[in-house]
Design a protein around this nucleic acid. Structure first.
Lengths: 256, 256
DNA sequence: TTGGCAAATAATGTGCACATTCGTATTTCT
DNA sequence: AGAAATACGAATGTGCACATTATTTGCCAA
Protein backbone atom coordinates (compact mmCIF):
# COMPACT_ATOMS: atom_id res chain seq x y z
CA UNK A 1 0.00 0.00 0.00
CA UNK A 2 0.91 3.55 0.30
CA UNK A 3 2.79 3.32 3.54
CA UNK A 4 1.93 6.89 4.46
CA UNK A 5 3.61 7.22 7.76
CA UNK A 6 1.69 9.64 9.86
CA UNK A 7 -0.41 11.68 7.57
CA UNK A 8 1.72 13.35 5.02
CA UNK A 9 -0.47 16.26 4.12
CA UNK A 10 0.30 18.81 6.78
CA UNK A 11 3.40 20.35 5.30
CA UNK A 12 1.35 22.91 3.49
CA UNK A 13 -0.05 24.33 6.69
CA UNK A 14 3.24 25.38 8.21
CA UNK A 15 4.55 27.52 5.41
CA UNK A 16 1.82 30.07 5.37
CA UNK A 17 2.84 33.71 5.19
CA UNK A 18 6.11 34.56 3.49
CA UNK A 19 5.63 38.00 4.96
CA UNK A 20 2.58 39.69 3.65
CA UNK A 21 -0.40 37.73 4.73
CA UNK A 22 -3.57 38.91 3.16
CA UNK A 23 -2.65 39.95 -0.34
CA UNK A 24 -4.30 38.03 -3.05
CA UNK A 25 -1.90 35.96 -5.02
CA UNK A 26 0.13 38.36 -7.17
CA UNK A 27 1.00 36.57 -10.37
CA UNK A 28 3.84 35.27 -12.45
CA UNK A 29 6.17 35.05 -9.44
CA UNK A 30 4.62 32.52 -7.12
CA UNK A 31 7.73 31.83 -5.09
CA UNK A 32 11.22 33.16 -5.07
CA UNK A 33 14.04 31.40 -3.27
CA UNK A 34 13.80 33.81 -0.41
CA UNK A 35 10.09 33.32 0.08
CA UNK A 36 10.42 29.54 0.21
CA UNK A 37 13.31 29.88 2.60
CA UNK A 38 11.31 32.23 4.79
CA UNK A 39 8.26 30.00 4.72
CA UNK A 40 10.13 26.93 5.88
CA UNK A 41 12.16 28.87 8.43
CA UNK A 42 8.97 30.37 9.81
CA UNK A 43 7.32 27.00 10.05
CA UNK A 44 10.25 25.69 12.05
CA UNK A 45 10.37 28.75 14.24
CA UNK A 46 6.67 28.57 15.01
CA UNK A 47 6.87 24.92 15.83
CA UNK A 48 4.55 23.89 13.03
CA UNK A 49 7.23 21.63 11.67
CA UNK A 50 7.95 19.32 14.54
CA UNK A 51 11.35 17.90 15.28
CA UNK A 52 12.09 14.82 13.24
CA UNK A 53 9.64 15.72 10.50
CA UNK A 54 10.77 14.63 7.06
CA UNK A 55 10.80 17.13 4.23
CA UNK A 56 10.90 15.23 0.94
CA UNK A 57 12.01 17.60 -1.74
CA UNK A 58 9.64 16.14 -4.31
CA UNK A 59 6.73 16.78 -2.01
CA UNK A 60 7.81 20.32 -1.29
CA UNK A 61 8.28 20.94 -5.00
CA UNK A 62 4.69 20.15 -5.77
CA UNK A 63 3.40 22.02 -2.75
CA UNK A 64 5.18 25.23 -3.68
CA UNK A 65 4.78 24.69 -7.38
CA UNK A 66 8.52 25.04 -7.80
CA UNK A 67 11.05 22.80 -9.38
CA UNK A 68 12.82 20.25 -7.27
CA UNK A 69 16.19 21.90 -7.79
CA UNK A 70 15.05 25.15 -6.32
CA UNK A 71 13.65 23.39 -3.29
CA UNK A 72 16.90 21.52 -3.08
CA UNK A 73 18.95 24.70 -3.03
CA UNK A 74 16.82 26.22 -0.30
CA UNK A 75 17.00 23.03 1.74
CA UNK A 76 20.78 22.97 1.54
CA UNK A 77 20.94 26.57 2.61
CA UNK A 78 18.72 25.85 5.58
CA UNK A 79 20.97 22.96 6.46
CA UNK A 80 24.02 25.22 6.33
CA UNK A 81 22.21 27.45 8.78
CA UNK A 82 21.71 24.46 11.06
CA UNK A 83 17.96 24.80 10.77
CA UNK A 84 17.61 21.51 8.93
CA UNK A 85 19.58 18.32 8.93
CA UNK A 86 20.57 16.49 5.77
CA UNK A 87 21.44 12.83 5.97
CA UNK A 88 23.15 11.74 2.74
CA UNK A 89 20.84 9.70 0.54
CA UNK A 90 18.27 9.69 3.28
CA UNK A 91 16.67 13.04 2.97
CA UNK A 92 16.27 16.15 5.06
CA UNK A 93 14.56 16.40 8.44
CA UNK A 94 13.95 18.91 11.15
CA UNK A 95 16.77 18.25 13.62
CA UNK A 96 15.87 16.35 16.73
CA UNK A 97 18.27 17.77 19.25
CA UNK A 98 19.49 15.70 22.13
CA UNK A 99 19.22 17.04 25.63
CA UNK A 100 22.95 17.72 25.56
CA UNK A 101 22.65 19.86 22.46
CA UNK A 102 19.81 21.77 24.06
CA UNK A 103 21.96 22.56 27.05
CA UNK A 104 24.82 23.60 24.78
CA UNK A 105 22.60 26.07 23.00
CA UNK A 106 21.37 27.55 26.25
CA UNK A 107 24.91 27.68 27.57
CA UNK A 108 26.07 29.47 24.44
CA UNK A 109 23.26 31.95 24.84
CA UNK A 110 24.18 32.44 28.48
CA UNK A 111 27.87 33.02 27.71
CA UNK A 112 27.04 35.42 24.91
CA UNK A 113 24.62 37.38 27.05
CA UNK A 114 27.26 37.84 29.73
CA UNK A 115 29.49 39.46 27.16
CA UNK A 116 26.61 41.53 25.86
CA UNK A 117 25.89 42.80 29.35
CA UNK A 118 29.50 43.85 29.85
CA UNK A 119 29.40 45.86 26.66
CA UNK A 120 25.94 47.17 27.34
CA UNK A 121 26.63 48.80 30.68
CA UNK A 122 29.31 50.92 29.02
CA UNK A 123 27.02 52.24 26.33
CA UNK A 124 23.65 52.30 27.99
CA UNK A 125 21.55 55.36 27.25
CA UNK A 126 17.99 56.54 27.69
CA UNK A 127 16.92 55.20 24.32
CA UNK A 128 17.99 51.66 25.05
CA UNK A 129 16.47 51.73 28.52
CA UNK A 130 13.28 53.03 26.99
CA UNK A 131 13.13 50.11 24.61
CA UNK A 132 13.70 47.61 27.38
CA UNK A 133 11.14 49.25 29.66
CA UNK A 134 8.58 49.28 26.89
CA UNK A 135 9.26 45.63 26.24
CA UNK A 136 8.83 44.75 29.90
CA UNK A 137 5.49 46.52 29.86
CA UNK A 138 4.41 44.38 26.91
CA UNK A 139 5.53 41.25 28.68
CA UNK A 140 3.54 42.13 31.78
CA UNK A 141 0.50 42.85 29.68
CA UNK A 142 0.72 39.52 27.92
CA UNK A 143 1.22 37.74 31.24
CA UNK A 144 -1.86 39.42 32.71
CA UNK A 145 -3.92 38.48 29.68
CA UNK A 146 -2.72 34.94 30.06
CA UNK A 147 -1.61 34.99 26.43
CA UNK A 148 0.82 32.14 26.57
CA UNK A 149 1.90 32.17 22.96
CA UNK A 150 2.61 35.86 23.07
CA UNK A 151 4.51 35.48 26.33
CA UNK A 152 6.77 32.88 24.79
CA UNK A 153 7.42 35.08 21.81
CA UNK A 154 8.14 38.12 23.95
CA UNK A 155 10.42 36.27 26.31
CA UNK A 156 12.63 35.42 23.38
CA UNK A 157 12.38 38.94 22.03
CA UNK A 158 13.72 40.30 25.31
CA UNK A 159 17.07 38.69 24.78
CA UNK A 160 17.05 39.85 21.18
CA UNK A 161 16.58 43.40 22.36
CA UNK A 162 19.63 43.09 24.54
CA UNK A 163 21.97 42.16 21.69
CA UNK A 164 20.28 44.40 19.17
CA UNK A 165 20.98 47.30 21.49
CA UNK A 166 24.68 46.82 20.71
CA UNK A 167 23.97 47.42 17.06
CA UNK A 168 26.29 44.61 16.01
CA UNK A 169 24.89 42.52 13.15
CA UNK A 170 27.25 39.63 13.80
CA UNK A 171 26.11 39.19 17.37
CA UNK A 172 22.46 39.68 16.50
CA UNK A 173 22.65 37.08 13.79
CA UNK A 174 24.35 34.57 16.06
CA UNK A 175 21.71 34.97 18.72
CA UNK A 176 18.95 34.60 16.17
CA UNK A 177 20.51 31.35 15.06
CA UNK A 178 20.54 30.13 18.64
CA UNK A 179 16.94 31.17 19.21
CA UNK A 180 15.75 29.48 16.05
CA UNK A 181 17.22 26.28 17.39
CA UNK A 182 15.69 26.84 20.79
CA UNK A 183 12.29 27.08 19.22
CA UNK A 184 12.58 23.58 17.90
CA UNK A 185 13.64 22.40 21.29
CA UNK A 186 10.64 23.71 23.15
CA UNK A 187 8.46 21.57 20.93
CA UNK A 188 10.42 18.50 21.91
CA UNK A 189 11.38 19.11 25.48
CA UNK A 190 8.39 21.23 26.26
CA UNK A 191 9.00 23.41 29.27
CA UNK A 192 6.57 23.29 32.11
CA UNK A 193 3.67 25.63 31.78
CA UNK A 194 3.90 29.20 32.88
CA UNK A 195 5.95 31.59 30.89
CA UNK A 196 9.29 30.38 29.65
CA UNK A 197 11.04 33.41 31.00
CA UNK A 198 9.60 34.95 34.11
CA UNK A 199 8.90 38.62 33.57
CA UNK A 200 10.27 39.42 36.98
CA UNK A 201 13.63 37.96 36.10
CA UNK A 202 13.79 40.07 32.98
CA UNK A 203 12.84 43.11 34.99
CA UNK A 204 15.56 42.45 37.52
CA UNK A 205 18.16 42.26 34.77
CA UNK A 206 17.03 45.59 33.40
CA UNK A 207 17.24 47.14 36.85
CA UNK A 208 20.79 45.89 37.28
CA UNK A 209 21.64 47.33 33.88
CA UNK A 210 20.09 50.65 34.85
CA UNK A 211 22.33 50.69 37.89
CA UNK A 212 25.32 49.93 35.66
CA UNK A 213 25.97 46.86 37.80
CA UNK A 214 27.39 44.42 35.26
CA UNK A 215 28.32 41.79 37.82
CA UNK A 216 24.82 41.64 39.22
CA UNK A 217 23.23 41.67 35.79
CA UNK A 218 25.39 38.76 34.73
CA UNK A 219 24.50 36.82 37.85
CA UNK A 220 20.82 37.43 37.26
CA UNK A 221 21.12 36.40 33.64
CA UNK A 222 23.03 33.31 34.64
CA UNK A 223 20.39 32.17 37.10
CA UNK A 224 17.70 33.08 34.65
CA UNK A 225 19.08 30.63 32.13
CA UNK A 226 19.52 27.96 34.75
CA UNK A 227 15.82 28.30 35.55
CA UNK A 228 14.92 27.90 31.92
CA UNK A 229 17.06 24.80 31.59
CA UNK A 230 15.57 23.28 34.69
CA UNK A 231 12.09 23.70 33.27
CA UNK A 232 12.90 21.49 30.31
CA UNK A 233 11.56 18.00 30.39
CA UNK A 234 14.25 15.45 30.22
CA UNK A 235 12.40 13.15 27.85
CA UNK A 236 11.43 14.02 24.32
CA UNK A 237 7.76 14.14 23.46
CA UNK A 238 7.92 12.05 20.32
CA UNK A 239 4.61 13.10 18.90
CA UNK A 240 3.58 12.31 15.38
CA UNK A 241 4.23 15.13 12.96
CA UNK A 242 1.45 16.92 11.20
CA UNK A 243 1.31 16.64 7.46
CA UNK A 244 3.04 18.98 5.10
CA UNK A 245 0.21 20.22 2.96
CA UNK A 246 -1.66 21.56 5.96
CA UNK A 247 1.42 23.31 7.27
CA UNK A 248 2.24 25.15 4.10
CA UNK A 249 -1.30 25.73 2.92
CA UNK A 250 -1.30 29.50 3.13
CA UNK A 251 2.22 29.92 1.91
CA UNK A 252 1.93 27.42 -0.87
CA UNK A 253 1.04 29.20 -4.04
CA UNK A 254 -1.17 31.95 -2.78
CA UNK A 255 -4.57 30.71 -3.80
CA UNK A 256 -4.58 27.54 -5.76
CA UNK B 1 41.85 40.09 -26.90
CA UNK B 2 41.56 37.74 -24.07
CA UNK B 3 40.77 40.37 -21.51
CA UNK B 4 42.59 38.54 -18.79
CA UNK B 5 42.15 40.94 -15.99
CA UNK B 6 45.09 40.55 -13.75
CA UNK B 7 46.42 37.19 -14.59
CA UNK B 8 43.71 34.65 -14.22
CA UNK B 9 45.83 31.65 -13.53
CA UNK B 10 46.50 31.94 -9.84
CA UNK B 11 43.37 30.30 -8.53
CA UNK B 12 45.02 26.96 -8.67
CA UNK B 13 47.74 28.02 -6.31
CA UNK B 14 45.49 28.88 -3.40
CA UNK B 15 43.64 25.63 -3.12
CA UNK B 16 46.57 23.42 -2.44
CA UNK B 17 46.26 20.97 0.42
CA UNK B 18 42.81 19.74 1.32
CA UNK B 19 44.43 18.50 4.48
CA UNK B 20 47.04 15.96 3.76
CA UNK B 21 49.83 17.67 1.99
CA UNK B 22 52.36 15.29 0.64
CA UNK B 23 50.45 12.18 -0.28
CA UNK B 24 50.62 11.29 -3.90
CA UNK B 25 47.31 11.69 -5.62
CA UNK B 26 45.12 8.78 -4.51
CA UNK B 27 42.83 7.84 -7.39
CA UNK B 28 39.24 7.46 -8.44
CA UNK B 29 38.06 10.04 -5.92
CA UNK B 30 39.79 13.22 -6.96
CA UNK B 31 37.60 15.58 -4.98
CA UNK B 32 34.66 15.18 -2.71
CA UNK B 33 32.44 18.08 -1.77
CA UNK B 34 34.17 18.38 1.55
CA UNK B 35 37.64 18.49 0.06
CA UNK B 36 36.72 21.25 -2.36
CA UNK B 37 35.06 23.14 0.41
CA UNK B 38 38.12 22.75 2.59
CA UNK B 39 40.47 23.78 -0.18
CA UNK B 40 38.65 27.01 -0.88
CA UNK B 41 38.12 27.77 2.79
CA UNK B 42 41.79 27.21 3.43
CA UNK B 43 42.80 29.46 0.57
CA UNK B 44 40.66 32.22 2.00
CA UNK B 45 41.93 31.64 5.50
CA UNK B 46 45.55 31.75 4.40
CA UNK B 47 44.99 34.89 2.43
CA UNK B 48 45.88 33.29 -0.85
CA UNK B 49 42.55 34.34 -2.24
CA UNK B 50 42.58 38.06 -1.85
CA UNK B 51 39.50 40.10 -1.07
CA UNK B 52 37.47 40.90 -4.13
CA UNK B 53 38.83 37.98 -6.12
CA UNK B 54 36.32 36.50 -8.49
CA UNK B 55 35.67 32.76 -8.46
CA UNK B 56 34.01 31.78 -11.74
CA UNK B 57 32.41 28.41 -11.27
CA UNK B 58 33.34 27.24 -14.73
CA UNK B 59 36.98 27.99 -14.03
CA UNK B 60 36.88 26.21 -10.70
CA UNK B 61 35.18 23.25 -12.31
CA UNK B 62 38.02 22.70 -14.72
CA UNK B 63 40.65 23.33 -12.08
CA UNK B 64 39.25 20.73 -9.72
CA UNK B 65 38.14 18.43 -12.48
CA UNK B 66 34.65 18.43 -11.04
CA UNK B 67 31.32 19.26 -12.58
CA UNK B 68 30.07 22.79 -12.42
CA UNK B 69 27.08 21.80 -10.31
CA UNK B 70 29.26 20.41 -7.57
CA UNK B 71 31.35 23.56 -7.53
CA UNK B 72 28.14 25.50 -7.46
CA UNK B 73 26.86 23.66 -4.41
CA UNK B 74 30.10 24.20 -2.53
CA UNK B 75 30.14 27.87 -3.45
CA UNK B 76 26.62 28.35 -2.15
CA UNK B 77 27.52 26.65 1.06
CA UNK B 78 30.56 28.87 1.49
CA UNK B 79 28.33 31.86 0.87
CA UNK B 80 25.92 30.69 3.54
CA UNK B 81 28.89 30.57 5.88
CA UNK B 82 29.67 34.16 4.98
CA UNK B 83 33.02 33.12 3.59
CA UNK B 84 32.06 34.07 0.06
CA UNK B 85 29.68 36.57 -1.37
CA UNK B 86 27.26 35.77 -4.17
CA UNK B 87 25.84 38.58 -6.24
CA UNK B 88 22.90 37.33 -8.28
CA UNK B 89 23.79 36.85 -11.92
CA UNK B 90 27.15 38.43 -11.25
CA UNK B 91 29.12 35.64 -9.78
CA UNK B 92 30.84 34.89 -6.53
CA UNK B 93 33.71 36.81 -4.98
CA UNK B 94 35.75 36.89 -1.83
CA UNK B 95 34.03 39.51 0.30
CA UNK B 96 35.73 42.86 0.53
CA UNK B 97 34.80 44.05 3.98
CA UNK B 98 34.48 47.70 4.75
CA UNK B 99 36.31 49.14 7.71
CA UNK B 100 33.01 49.25 9.57
CA UNK B 101 32.47 45.54 9.06
CA UNK B 102 35.97 44.84 10.26
CA UNK B 103 35.30 46.71 13.44
CA UNK B 104 32.02 44.88 13.89
CA UNK B 105 33.77 41.55 13.66
CA UNK B 106 36.38 42.55 16.20
CA UNK B 107 33.68 43.98 18.44
CA UNK B 108 31.74 40.74 18.23
CA UNK B 109 34.87 38.81 19.11
CA UNK B 110 35.52 41.14 22.03
CA UNK B 111 31.97 40.81 23.37
CA UNK B 112 32.04 37.05 23.00
CA UNK B 113 35.38 36.75 24.74
CA UNK B 114 34.09 38.73 27.69
CA UNK B 115 31.35 36.18 28.13
CA UNK B 116 33.82 33.36 27.65
CA UNK B 117 36.01 34.76 30.39
CA UNK B 118 33.11 34.98 32.80
CA UNK B 119 32.31 31.35 32.22
CA UNK B 120 35.93 30.31 32.19
CA UNK B 121 36.86 31.60 35.63
CA UNK B 122 34.14 29.42 37.12
CA UNK B 123 35.38 26.24 35.51
CA UNK B 124 39.10 26.78 35.27
CA UNK B 125 41.25 23.79 36.13
CA UNK B 126 44.84 22.70 35.82
CA UNK B 127 44.30 21.11 32.46
CA UNK B 128 43.03 24.29 30.85
CA UNK B 129 45.75 26.38 32.43
CA UNK B 130 48.26 23.89 31.17
CA UNK B 131 47.01 24.24 27.62
CA UNK B 132 47.14 28.01 27.82
CA UNK B 133 50.62 28.03 29.34
CA UNK B 134 51.89 25.67 26.70
CA UNK B 135 50.42 27.88 24.05
CA UNK B 136 52.06 30.97 25.49
CA UNK B 137 55.37 29.17 25.40
CA UNK B 138 54.88 28.46 21.72
CA UNK B 139 54.00 32.06 21.06
CA UNK B 140 57.13 33.28 22.80
CA UNK B 141 59.22 30.82 20.83
CA UNK B 142 57.78 31.99 17.55
CA UNK B 143 58.31 35.60 18.54
CA UNK B 144 61.94 34.94 19.43
CA UNK B 145 62.49 33.19 16.14
CA UNK B 146 60.93 36.13 14.38
CA UNK B 147 58.56 33.77 12.62
CA UNK B 148 55.93 36.26 11.68
CA UNK B 149 53.57 33.90 9.88
CA UNK B 150 53.60 31.50 12.79
CA UNK B 151 53.05 34.32 15.25
CA UNK B 152 49.99 35.46 13.38
CA UNK B 153 48.63 31.94 13.34
CA UNK B 154 49.28 31.41 17.02
CA UNK B 155 47.79 34.71 18.06
CA UNK B 156 44.54 33.63 16.51
CA UNK B 157 44.84 30.20 18.04
CA UNK B 158 45.11 31.72 21.50
CA UNK B 159 41.58 33.03 21.36
CA UNK B 160 40.41 29.73 19.95
CA UNK B 161 41.89 27.96 22.96
CA UNK B 162 39.90 30.20 25.25
CA UNK B 163 36.53 29.27 23.75
CA UNK B 164 37.45 25.66 23.11
CA UNK B 165 38.20 25.35 26.81
CA UNK B 166 34.47 25.76 27.44
CA UNK B 167 33.78 22.69 25.35
CA UNK B 168 30.81 24.31 23.68
CA UNK B 169 30.63 23.55 19.95
CA UNK B 170 28.25 26.42 19.24
CA UNK B 171 30.60 29.02 20.66
CA UNK B 172 33.65 27.47 19.07
CA UNK B 173 32.00 27.45 15.69
CA UNK B 174 30.92 31.05 15.99
CA UNK B 175 34.41 32.19 16.87
CA UNK B 176 35.88 30.24 13.99
CA UNK B 177 33.49 32.01 11.67
CA UNK B 178 34.63 35.33 13.02
CA UNK B 179 38.30 34.42 12.70
CA UNK B 180 37.87 33.23 9.14
CA UNK B 181 36.50 36.63 8.30
CA UNK B 182 39.28 38.37 10.17
CA UNK B 183 41.83 36.56 8.08
CA UNK B 184 40.46 38.16 4.94
CA UNK B 185 40.60 41.51 6.61
CA UNK B 186 44.26 41.42 7.50
CA UNK B 187 45.02 41.00 3.81
CA UNK B 188 43.08 44.15 3.04
CA UNK B 189 43.69 46.35 6.02
CA UNK B 190 47.09 44.98 6.79
CA UNK B 191 48.04 45.63 10.38
CA UNK B 192 51.32 47.28 11.09
CA UNK B 193 54.22 44.95 11.41
CA UNK B 194 54.98 43.24 14.66
CA UNK B 195 52.80 40.46 15.84
CA UNK B 196 49.07 40.97 15.58
CA UNK B 197 48.52 40.04 19.17
CA UNK B 198 51.30 40.90 21.56
CA UNK B 199 52.35 37.85 23.50
CA UNK B 200 52.58 39.89 26.67
CA UNK B 201 48.94 40.84 26.43
CA UNK B 202 47.96 37.22 26.04
CA UNK B 203 50.10 36.32 29.01
CA UNK B 204 48.50 38.99 31.14
CA UNK B 205 45.05 37.64 30.32
CA UNK B 206 46.10 34.16 31.37
CA UNK B 207 47.49 35.50 34.63
CA UNK B 208 44.23 37.28 35.38
CA UNK B 209 42.38 34.05 34.64
CA UNK B 210 44.71 32.13 36.93
CA UNK B 211 43.86 34.60 39.67
CA UNK B 212 40.15 34.07 38.94
CA UNK B 213 39.89 37.80 38.38
CA UNK B 214 37.22 37.99 35.70
CA UNK B 215 36.91 41.75 35.77
CA UNK B 216 40.60 42.26 35.19
CA UNK B 217 40.74 39.61 32.50
CA UNK B 218 37.87 41.26 30.67
CA UNK B 219 39.55 44.63 30.89
CA UNK B 220 42.78 43.20 29.53
CA UNK B 221 40.95 41.45 26.73
CA UNK B 222 39.07 44.63 25.94
CA UNK B 223 42.22 46.70 25.64
CA UNK B 224 43.87 43.93 23.73
CA UNK B 225 41.24 44.12 21.02
CA UNK B 226 41.39 47.88 20.94
CA UNK B 227 45.11 47.59 20.25
CA UNK B 228 44.49 45.20 17.41
CA UNK B 229 41.89 47.50 15.90
CA UNK B 230 44.17 50.47 16.17
CA UNK B 231 46.84 48.63 14.24
CA UNK B 232 44.58 48.26 11.22
CA UNK B 233 45.25 50.56 8.35
CA UNK B 234 42.27 52.67 7.56
CA UNK B 235 42.62 52.36 3.82
CA UNK B 236 42.30 49.16 1.86
CA UNK B 237 45.29 47.90 -0.04
CA UNK B 238 43.53 47.23 -3.31
CA UNK B 239 46.18 45.00 -4.73
CA UNK B 240 45.58 42.96 -7.82
CA UNK B 241 44.55 39.43 -7.11
CA UNK B 242 46.78 36.55 -8.02
CA UNK B 243 45.43 34.13 -10.54
CA UNK B 244 43.37 31.11 -9.73
CA UNK B 245 45.38 28.30 -11.23
CA UNK B 246 48.43 29.18 -9.21
CA UNK B 247 46.44 29.34 -6.01
CA UNK B 248 44.83 25.96 -6.39
CA UNK B 249 47.73 24.22 -8.03
CA UNK B 250 48.48 21.75 -5.25
CA UNK B 251 44.90 21.10 -4.35
CA UNK B 252 43.65 20.78 -7.86
CA UNK B 253 43.69 17.19 -8.87
CA UNK B 254 46.75 16.00 -7.10
CA UNK B 255 48.93 15.26 -10.10
CA UNK B 256 47.49 16.56 -13.31
C1' DT C 1 38.03 62.33 -29.76
C1' DT C 2 34.35 61.11 -26.82
C1' DG C 3 30.00 59.65 -25.68
C1' DG C 4 26.32 56.52 -26.18
C1' DC C 5 24.19 52.47 -28.37
C1' DA C 6 23.93 47.84 -29.95
C1' DA C 7 25.47 43.24 -30.80
C1' DA C 8 28.36 39.49 -29.29
C1' DT C 9 30.18 36.75 -25.67
C1' DA C 10 30.74 34.70 -21.38
C1' DA C 11 28.95 33.53 -17.04
C1' DT C 12 25.15 32.40 -14.11
C1' DG C 13 20.38 30.38 -13.21
C1' DT C 14 17.14 26.72 -14.08
C1' DG C 15 14.87 22.59 -15.36
C1' DC C 16 15.16 17.82 -16.95
C1' DA C 17 16.74 13.11 -17.22
C1' DC C 18 19.48 9.49 -15.51
C1' DA C 19 22.42 7.04 -11.91
C1' DT C 20 22.79 5.66 -7.23
C1' DT C 21 21.37 4.44 -2.70
C1' DC C 22 18.36 3.35 1.04
C1' DG C 23 14.05 1.39 2.92
C1' DT C 24 10.57 -1.98 2.44
C1' DA C 25 8.34 -6.14 1.30
C1' DT C 26 8.47 -10.54 -0.45
C1' DT C 27 10.36 -14.94 -1.02
C1' DT C 28 12.97 -18.82 0.13
C1' DC C 29 15.71 -21.80 2.84
C1' DT C 30 16.60 -24.02 7.17
C1' DA D 1 7.50 -20.80 11.47
C1' DG D 2 11.37 -17.75 11.80
C1' DA D 3 15.16 -15.49 9.82
C1' DA D 4 17.99 -14.06 6.20
C1' DA D 5 18.72 -12.86 1.57
C1' DT D 6 16.90 -10.75 -2.44
C1' DA D 7 14.14 -7.95 -5.36
C1' DC D 8 11.32 -3.94 -5.82
C1' DG D 9 10.23 0.92 -5.24
C1' DA D 10 10.93 5.56 -3.81
C1' DA D 11 13.78 9.29 -2.81
C1' DT D 12 18.12 11.55 -3.25
C1' DG D 13 22.52 12.75 -5.95
C1' DT D 14 24.59 14.18 -10.23
C1' DG D 15 25.53 15.71 -14.76
C1' DC D 16 23.85 17.88 -19.00
C1' DA D 17 21.56 21.20 -21.88
C1' DC D 18 19.07 25.35 -22.40
C1' DA D 19 17.37 30.08 -20.94
C1' DT D 20 18.47 34.39 -18.94
C1' DT D 21 21.33 38.05 -17.54
C1' DA D 22 25.42 40.95 -17.28
C1' DT D 23 29.62 42.56 -19.36
C1' DT D 24 32.48 43.75 -22.93
C1' DT D 25 33.60 45.12 -27.58
C1' DG D 26 32.90 47.38 -31.68
C1' DC D 27 30.58 50.97 -34.15
C1' DC D 28 28.35 55.11 -35.17
C1' DA D 29 27.31 59.71 -34.46
C1' DA D 30 27.94 64.21 -32.39
Amino acid sequence: MDRMKAGDDSLKEALKPPGRGGRRAPRAQPHTDASIHAAIARAILHGELKAGAKLPEHRLAEIFGASRERIRKVLHRLAAERRLEIIPNRGVRVPQPTIEEVKRVYEAHRVLEAGVIVQLVSMLDARILGILDAHLAQERLAAERGDRAESVRLSGAFHLHLVDALGNPELSRFLRDLLSRSSVMVSVYEPASQSICAVDEHGAIVEALRARDATRAIQLSHHHFLHVEQRLHMEPKNETAADLKEIFRGAARGAK
